[in-house]
């Protein structure tokens, strides 16, 4: 029943995603060169300025306060808790991607960490060498053949694409636990995600600061880093697909990689 509600909502949004994301996309070769499709750049840059303001005056100080007040092992515990809360949703995503083995591993992790791991505050599954899992509805859409779509910077959330934005909304609001008959609060997944992000923002504050505040064009840096990292995640273990990403600077170091027609191996 709980899975059914989530799945039905996912299917509705899937139809929307196909319409939005199917319109235009970059080719694999273009993506290999770090190319991006950003027709909404002006709007995105406005959102970026807004996000920078929110970070500077709210999120950054709150996150730094959080990691300085809360002892490090507890921050790790809260991260584990947030991760554990997201596992039922990930299990559904793996199922929708046609990966029953990963679905089982994800549910197994959830079972172990929810019980032996004190409701997910500890991560004994990792100590027991249960494989790591990491997926989301954006990846499900990718597996179903939905293209990346235009780059989008989402208010409060940050870098995304039209496809992954759909995934973010679905994952945050259709956590199967939200459909459980007895639940502590609504949208638990949303709140734990905010706490998890604060932990990461606080822990890696210098690195994030260097991208957001020390770069000559923080929008362009965030866009490039997000897209490369996301494409890497989605490529998974498909190593041959990934070989295409290695532009060879020895062949022509002067070439402009943002030229979508460049062949990285051209002599």
């Amino acid at each position: 029943m709980t899975n059914f509600a989530g799945t039905a909502l996912r299917l509705c949004i899937m139809a929307l995603a196909l319409v939005v994301a199917g319109c235009a996309q970059t080719t694999t070769v273009e993506q290999a060169n770090g190319a991006f499709y950003d027709p909404y750049e002006n709007g995105n840059r406005s959102v970026h300025s807004f996000n920078l303001g929110v970070d500077k005056f709210l999120f950054r100080p709150a996150s730094k306060g959080y990691v300085s007040i809360i002892p490090d092992p507890m921050v790790t515990s809260f991260n584990s808790f947030a991760e554990n809360i997201s596992l039922p949703g990930q299990a559904v995503d793996y199922l929708l991607q046609g990966k029953p083995k990963e679905t089982a591993i994800t549910l197994y992790r959830f079972l172990i960490n929810s019980t032996v791991g004190f409701a997910g505050l500890a991560d004994p599954a990792t100590d027991f060498k249960v494989p790591q899992v990491d997926t989301d509805f954006g990846e499900t859409l990718h597996v179903w053949g939905v293209g990346e779509g235009p780059y989008l910077e989402l208010p409060l959330y940050g870098p995304s694409t039209t496809r992954d934005a759909v995934g973010v909304v679905v994952n945050l609001f259709t956590n199967p636990l939200d459909f459980a008959p007895t639940r502590p609060i609504d949208n638990l997944g949303l709140y734990t995600e905010v706490v998890r992000r604060m932990g990461d923002r606080g822990r890696f504050s210098d690195t994030v600061d260097s991208i957001l505040y020390e770069s000559a064009d923080s929008y362009a840096q965030a866009r490039l880093i997000y897209l490369q990292n996301r494409r890497f995640e989605l490529a998974g273990d498909d190593e041959d697909a990934y070989l295409g990403l290695y532009a060879d600077p020895y062949s022509d170091p002067y070439s402009d990689a943002s030229d979508p027609y460049e062949d990285p191996y051209a002599e």
Partner: peptide, 22 residues
């Protein structure tokens, strides 16, 4: 070594973007 990728993020390409912006 002439390049590094951290979780898929290409160091050289990232720096080319940054230096281009500068």
């Amino acid at each position: 070594f002439y390049n590094m990728f951290i979780e898929g993020v290409n160091l050289l390409l990232t720096e080319r973007t940054e230096i281009g912006a500068m």
